[in-house]
Computed example of a mutant assay.
Amino acid sequence: MFNHPYYYNNHQAFEPAPYPPFFDARQQVVRGQATWTEGGQVTKCNIAWSDNQYMTVAVSPRAGFQCGQTIKVRNPQNTREVLVEVVDTVQGYPPNRINLHKRAFEALGANPDVGVLNVEIIANPELEAEKFGKYLIEIVSVGYPGYRVVNYKFEGKEEVSTNRSKETYLYTLESPRETIQVRGSVVYNPNTNRVISFDLTELEQ
């Protein structure tokens, strides 16, 4: 069991756009294209490209995503998936075109030499709706270096007491050698959003 006095932070929104968001709860899977970048020193979100073990992405301002939001990207040619964090925007890109960090692009099994990859972009409303799903993704990524989180499942929420709530998630991680599952839970004060403790358990295969 780990104790961590962290607070959950809400997403920072981009500047309001004069058009409705392209991605919403009614359309979660969109076919599009991905390019790649090695990132830069400054991002629109003030989040480094190296965050989340370089599983990061820049999106069109018209897509409707927010800074720090997690989206899933799938390569339909081999079904590989990555969960990436929105850290920047790309002016002039259509809503269904994204710019992945090179490491995320390669994690999809793509050769950077191809330049542009056809992908499926999936918004993650379930993960974003639950307070600490993304919080635990970041902890799992740090706790399992060399692995990337490719999927998750919200397993439930328990009201432990009036000032303690518990959320549990199941994460699927991949490395070049294997695929594993890790169950993560976090106990927090629902009145202050302060984390009381969290726990990670690797499941036996």
Rank of each mutant, 00 (worst) to 15 (best):
R148K: 12
K134I: 12
P94N: 13
E202F: 02
Q28Y: 12
G115N: 05
V142T: 13
E81I: 11
R26I: 14
P145F: 07
R97N: 10
Y144S: 08
C67Q: 12
V59H: 05
W49N: 01
P95K: 00
N52W: 13
E178L: 00
I122P: 01
V150Q: 01
Y152Q: 13
Q181E: 10
N75Y: 00
F105V: 02
V140R: 00
E120D: 11
I180A: 05
I71P: 05
Y54R: 09
T56R: 12
L203S: 10
I121S: 01
Q53M: 13
R164D: 01
H101K: 09
H4L: 08
A123H: 08
V182S: 02
T37E: 09
I121A: 03
I137V: 03
P125N: 07
T162A: 15
E126N: 11
N96A: 07
R80N: 10
Y135A: 13
N78T: 00
Q69P: 06
D113S: 14
T168L: 08
Y8H: 12
N151T: 10
G146L: 10
E204L: 15
V187E: 09
A17L: 15
D113A: 13
L203C: 09
P18R: 05
E85N: 07
R183Q: 15
V150H: 02
L136A: 12
P125Q: 09
P145C: 02
Y152E: 11
I122T: 11
P125T: 10
V142Y: 15
I139F: 02
S141P: 04
E38C: 08
Y19I: 15
S175T: 01
F154M: 06
F65A: 03
T201R: 14
L83K: 03
V59S: 00
L203K: 13
A107H: 09
Y93V: 00
I98Y: 01
G68M: 04
Q205T: 15
L136R: 11
Y93I: 01
T43V: 12
E158S: 07
P125E: 05
E38F: 09
E202C: 03
A104Y: 03
I196A: 07
S161M: 03
R31V: 08
V59C: 00
V59G: 04
Y188E: 00
Q205N: 14
N78E: 05
N10K: 14
N96D: 11
L170K: 12
A48L: 11
R31H: 11
Q91R: 13
P176Y: 05
W49Y: 07
R97E: 08
R148N: 11
N163C: 13
V42E: 08
T201F: 14
L173Q: 07
E126I: 13
N3L: 14
Q12A: 06
N124C: 10
S141C: 03
C45S: 04
Y188H: 04
T35S: 14
A48N: 12
V187T: 10
V82M: 00
L108I: 06
V160C: 06
A34F: 10
P5Y: 06
D88M: 06
V182Y: 02
E202I: 05
Q33Y: 15
K44R: 14
Y147T: 06
V195T: 04
G40C: 10
N9S: 07
N99P: 01
V186N: 04
E159T: 05
V195A: 03
I121P: 00
V182I: 04
R148F: 07
W49C: 00
K102T: 04
V59R: 03
